[in-house]
């Protein structure tokens, strides 16, 4: 038990520092694309600590207070149900008690908890952001579910560790074995990471940064911290599912950084979709590829 708790702390620390590092890179990279110098690599950490060092925070009652807590708890709980490494006792969290379907649903718990706080704050912009997020989620989940369902029925298991274990050599990586599923999932991946073209939820000018409009000080600090951790959880999940998992932290970082780089490039290159455009897009191209893959798979059986 102690070992698990220690591991959980380790996972939190790892994802936090990884996330801060990656997002530091993200900001510098974006700056270089704009031909700017950009902030220092650890700017995100500085920002985060500054937010916690604020002297006061706005509040709208107890539910508002609990929102960021639920959000962070949701993130960390989902993190603990993702195995980080394969063939290792380390950084497994509680993943043996859960599975992929559980994880997909766990990942929604936090945002919905936070949505309650957004609602109670009474900022209409925040609620608009939430609705946009939920609407966008329709588009993201459907192709994503299709692709992971392909994986799960392909490998005959719904457990993440077992899916990861099954990919023992490069040619067995699921991105090789199930290329269509991988491609479909990449669309959802970019969307779930919140990069453009799917970043309409927190549009700063239109809806006043959406769900985060009313949060400041320590609350914003928690939200910012969980955001980077959450992104890392998704990266690690994709590494586990499609990129053959990782046997140690360095391979994990290399693989997840490759995915992160992809996300960064897409985010830097594309303009923003409107909410309904995002859903319509996701329900067209990715879904068609996915359905095609399912049909091919079951006809060839």
């Amino acid at each position: 038990m102690l070992f698990t708790i220690f591991n959980s702390l380790l996972a939190v620390l790892l994802t936090y520092s990884m996330g801060m590092l990656y997002y530091g890179f993200y900001r510098i990279g974006n700056a270089r694309i704009h031909r700017r110098v950009g902030p220092p690599l650890w700017q995100n950490v500085i920002d985060n600590i500054k937010l916690f060092a604020k002297r006061e925070a706005p509040g709208h009652g107890i539910m508002f207070h609990l929102g960021p807590v639920i959000m962070t708890a949701g993130t960390i709980t989902s993190m603990l149900f993702v195995p980080f490494l394969k063939d290792s006792a380390w950084l497994q969290g509680f993943s043996s008690y859960g599975n992929l379907i559980l994880l997909i649903y766990l990942m929604v718990v936090g945002p919905l908890g936070n949505a309650l706080a957004v609602g109670v704050s009474g900022v209409p912009f925040g609620v608009m952001g939430v609705t946009r997020g939920l609407t966008r989620l329709i588009g993201l989940e459907v192709p994503f579910f299709l692709s992971v369902a392909l994986l799960m029925s392909g490998s005959g298991t719904i457990s993440i560790s077992e899916i990861m274990m099954a990919q023992d050599s490069f040619s067995n990586w699921n991105m090789m074995a199930h290329p269509a599923a991988f491609i479909v999932s990449l669309f959802s991946f970019v969307g779930m990471m919140g990069a453009s073209p799917f970043d309409v939820v927190g549009a700063p000018v239109e809806v006043y940064s959406g769900p985060q409009a009313e949060f400041g000080g320590k609350y914003l600090g928690f939200l910012a911290a969980q955001r980077v951790m959450f992104s890392m959880v998704k990266l690690i999940l994709w590494v586990d599912l499609f990129l053959g998992g990782a046997t140690n932290v360095f391979i994990l970082m290399a693989k997840s950084f490759a995915l992160f780089f992809f996300y960064f490039i897409v985010g830097a290159a594309f303009p923003r979709f409107k909410t309904e455009q995002a859903v319509d897009f996701m329900l067209k191209l990715p879904l068609i590829i996915g359905i095609g893959a399912v049909l091919v798979r079951f006809w060839s059986l």
Binding site: P39, D47, P58, P204, V205, Y208, S209, Q212, A213, E214, F215, G216, L220
Partner: peptide
């Protein structure tokens, strides 16, 4: 860096 709302 820019902030969107006064709270932030």
């Amino acid at each position: 860096r820019g902030a969107a709302t006064p709270r932030q």
